[in-house]
Write a protein that binds this DNA or RNA. Sequence first.
DNA 1: GGCTTTGTTTTATA
DNA 2: GTATAAAACAAAGC
Length: 274
Amino acid sequence: MPELPEVETIVRGLKELIKGRRITAIKVREAKLIAYPSKDEFINQLKGKKIIDINRRGKYILIALEGNKNLVIHLRMTGRLLVKGSEEPYYKHTHIIFRLDDDRELRFNNMRKFGRMYLIDAGEWQQAGGLAELGPEPLSSDFTLRDFTLSFKNRRTSIKALLLNQKFIAGLGNIYVDEALFLAGISPLRKADSLTDKEIEKLYHSIREVLRQGIESGGTTFSDYLNARGGEGSFQKKLHVYQREGKDCHRCQTKIIKERVAGRGTHYCPGCQR
DNA sequence: GGCTTTGTTTTATA
DNA sequence: GTATAAAACAAAGC
């Protein structure tokens, strides 16, 4: 599940591998993955464009192209962006292929076909799904404890649901929300406005810490996630609660519980998360 | 063939 | 308009 650390790892890989390259041809084998504009427009506008830079906003990948165009990509659950030599065999579920001018290819692989691509002009960010409405970047220096604390006002939903809300904070998904709440010692069932200022501060630091560690480990690979080179991440070895149902808590040896919270599989330690 | 998975959007309700 | 919860949706693997 590509969340902020996985997307960041992919973006860093793409910067090294394809920045400055030119797109010479596009093959679209599954047109529904292009959300905007039409398939024909998408191909026509991309052909021949040079890749200026690659960046990230929340879980969105932003590929800046010459001519003020931006290729925006969301991987959703099972999306991969892989850079391969054009002679290398395709993985299963390779749906869109960008041929580059150095005889390599950028391949959009997507088992469940949930991922989406958007090709937009400079002023068209509204066209790219929820990109324009994202909340703050948790690792940015602009993301202050003061703003985070203030944003809890009048929020009565569960802390789990709130942290998954991309308009509230960008980039967290099911894995890193569960891990951040464990580090902070806060139960996912708590109502957001029941958190004390001290708990919010703990959570603020936990979110940033777990995301930094996730990036340092190159992301979490359970079944699908791979970086741009096709390599796996290693953060799955450092998880405290996610996918550890029934196992002993690393801190207090209580058995980890899994239950549905906010409609999602939610893992936590009833011993040290209150 | 029903169940599971998650990120996001949609819908209904207060 | 805002906040929230629940449902819907995407599709493949088991």
